[in-house]
Design a protein around this nucleic acid. Structure first.
Lengths: 223, 223
DNA sequence: GTCTATAGACTGATAGAC
DNA sequence: GTCTATCAGTCTATAGAC
């Protein structure tokens, strides 16, 4: 523990470099040069390059998951063990979106690292994401409490689509900005959260065949 | 052109290997061994590993884009220059989803390669995807014709969310299957297309503050 | 224990003979 | 157009100094 400085210097430098230039472009030699430590120190402290990336990602995603569960728990306790569906969805996508988007967040190394992890999805990160299912089950359960009458399959699709909209917005900020010629404001995080929650809530609370326009709008219960 | 066989042998072997094992795990030496050609042939015919990947991806995604535009054009001609919004959205997400999901498609090298490209998103592929905006503008225009009264910003968000749901479904098949304990059928492509189109259509055709359950459901026009 | 220095195996890329 | 030989650069592993 005498020189824990080396370990944290590697973590700090790696997070910044990966955030700036991506996983493919940054070598261990770049990292140790920026951290001003020896090359072998990475292997000594983390075992391998992949484990270094995994440690960075686990730290940040554990924090997000904790925030999500805190929001959910607070909402359900306030509602006597049951929260409205839009509040549950807000607890699911809010922390992630707030952590990755927004004007000043753009400068945080941690935020930019998580965006990068979302875009590039290298093997060590994919491996960790696959273990996320247990965490999501808690939200599926809360959604079931919020909408006890809804078909279980529809709930899973609703959860899946809510995460899809949130993650794609983080991942593809640039494309939406270009496509809309800057008209879609990606800096107003709260407005984005509202949009995602609203669409997912609507999909989960509208009964099949109720739309006023389309002839075959079956919402979540298709076919 | 005497030995164009070498070139196509490399393409075929590379597509299969990348589909099977991902971009990170497959080396040029693996590819030339499978194609039974010389190592230097890859650099001679394609310039670099990245350009080989780019060529594979461009070929497949051009085919999908063509299919999308054909569907859109046919629908708008049938409707006298204007198609219903759900039909436009179906032309947008249908070809991609049909190309990547489904029971037998799971065996096609091309389909599995495109899934892999969607998941791993290596630099050469990201570069190509960034040029996709012009293609999407045609769909934004068709959506504007379908819903002339709708705020332009809402249309862009609707397009963005439709693509988000489609791509995440392709990317994260495994997670949804695990989360739902197999209850969500990822083999029924038509049902999935219906779901995605239905949610996106609903989001685009419902006026703010009309939901029957939530107190603050503003759909796409948030804040 | 902590860290340095160094070696080894592998990668993509290329020069030059054929 | 094809091939051999070889390049510089990468990650990983380890022997040994502090």
């Amino acid at each position: 523990m005498a020189t824990d400085h080396t370990r944290s210097a590697i973590l700090t430098a790696a997070e910044r470099l990966y955030a700036d230039r991506g996983f493919a472009d940054v070598t261990l030699r770049d990292i140790v040069a920026a951290a001003d430590v020896n090359l072998a120190a990475v292997n000594y402290h983390f075992g391998s390059k992949d484990e270094l990336i995994a440690e960075l990602f686990v730290t940040r995603s554990l924090a997000t998951n904790r925030e999500r569960l805190n929001e959910l728990k607070a909402a359900e306790e306030a509602g006597g063990g049951r929260a409205e569906i839009d509040v549950v969805l807000r607890a699911l996508v809010g922390p992630t979106l707030r952590g990755c988007l927004g004007p000043d967040k753009q400068r945080s190394d941690a935020a930019r690292f998580m965006i990068r992890a979302s875009i590039e999805s290298v093997p060590p990160i994919r491996k960790i994401k696959n273990r996320e299912v247990d965490h999501l089950r808690k939200f599926a359960a809360a959604m079931k409490r919020a909408l006890p009458g809804r078909d279980e399959v529809d709930l899973y699709w609703g959860l899946h689509f809510a995460l899809a909209m949130a993650h794609q917005t983080i991942r593809d900020t640039e494309r939406l900005t270009k496509l809309s010629d800057g008209k879609c404001d990606l800096n107003d995080v709260n407005a984005i959260i509202d949009r995602v929650v609203a669409v997912a809530t609507l999909a989960l609370t509208t009964n099949p065949g109720r739309s006023k326009t389309g002839p075959r709008v079956n919402v979540l219960a298709a076919r």
